[in-house]
Design a protein around this nucleic acid. Structure first.
Lengths: 184, 184
DNA sequence: CGACACATGTAACACGTTACATGATTTG
DNA sequence: CAAATCATGTAACGTGTTACATGTGTCG
């Protein structure tokens, strides 16, 4: 939001439109949230209701604090620790950690699904117009991610084969503190 | 949680311990959340307070509904659409979409940061013991992801150079509906 | 004894998601 | 005119995060 407001005051619908124009509707943005977010940004002093005429629409403009925040965001790299937990990695790790799960099947189903996504993404990339560079980069980001995921899944299968037959490695149970066994 | 409860009833602290044993403390799990999550799972009928003795601890066991849910989770691949928005992709897309941002600098800073993470991950992988296969896979998942990110960043820089000097492509502004210009 | 890990919770908060309400304007 | 789009909100809900409270057990 702050990035989009950097040049000129804008209003809710416009913000959603420009966000989706920039990211190619890859991550649809609920219009309701735009307004709640604008309210919260205003609460935090990062935007304010624009003084200039808005032709009947509620325009918002970025504040100095908002510009600082924005510059900070662009300057600070996205840290790996700050990213959300990777559901797929967790799923595979748990499939390995608990008995009775056909890990191979999980890997293969995921592989099929990801391959299909990759195909769809490639199709989208082909159909993308020349001018929409930012959208192309977003699509390519997802393509690179999907490719890495497939490589990782292949790597997982190789690991599985190498460890085939070996006893479930180091039961991975949490050591129950001994003396608490006989607690009240 | 459901996956860890599959074999036998367990208690809060134990669940956190085993989760972190399986994922290698890559994503630290707040103990408070374990309890709130257990409460919510119980609310939804996926776990219940275990009937067996727990030596003074509150044990939980999975229910039939929980087993169904769990089997479903393992059977269903993680869809690309269901993943959280990629902050880095959004940042780069917006850096391109709005004027006055040094995109190159953003890319280069991110590249440095990601390279450093990659080094750290590689170090962790070397230091990981033999038996901890699920943790190794998690680390490798992050390594594959970081490598893909670097490749993508390189690709972005190449794109930037190719488009150097060209006018900012297709201003990407949301078309303001014409007749609304003169609204009350 | 004092510090620390174990163990179980609760409250407050932030944020994203969905659904709903309301009205103006455009378009077939 | 009717339907769709534009436009601005609000309410309810789910979940993750942080901080706090409380008590037991272990260990130097």
């Amino acid at each position: 939001m702050l990035a989009l407001l950097q040049d000129e005051p804008k209003y809710g619908y416009q913000l959603r439109g420009e966000f989706e124009a920039a990211t190619g509707a890859t991550w649809p943005l609920n219009i309701g949230q735009v307004y709640t977010t604008l309210t919260r940004l205003e609460r935090d002093g990062l935007v304010r209701a624009a003084s200039s005429e808005g032709d009947g629409r509620s325009m918002y403009e970025i504040t100095d604090a908002g510009r600082t925040e924005l510059a900070n965001w662009f300057q600070t790299p996205v840290a790996r620790e700050s990213r959300p937990r990777d559901e797929l990695a967790i799923k595979l790790a748990l499939a390995l950690a608990v008995p009775g799960v056909d890990v191979s099947a999980v890997v293969q189903r995921q592989r099929m699904s990801t391959m299909q996504s990759l195909q769809e993404l490639t199709r989208q990339k082909r159909n993308s117009a020349e001018g929409e560079i930012s959208w192309q980069l977003v699509i390519e980001s997802m393509i690179f991610g999907a490719e890495a995921e497939i490589r990782w899944l292949d790597h997982c299968e190789a690991m599985l084969l190498r460890h085939r037959g070996k006893p479930r490695p180091a039961p991975q149970t949490y050591d129950v503190p001994a003396d608490q066994e006989a607690r009240s």
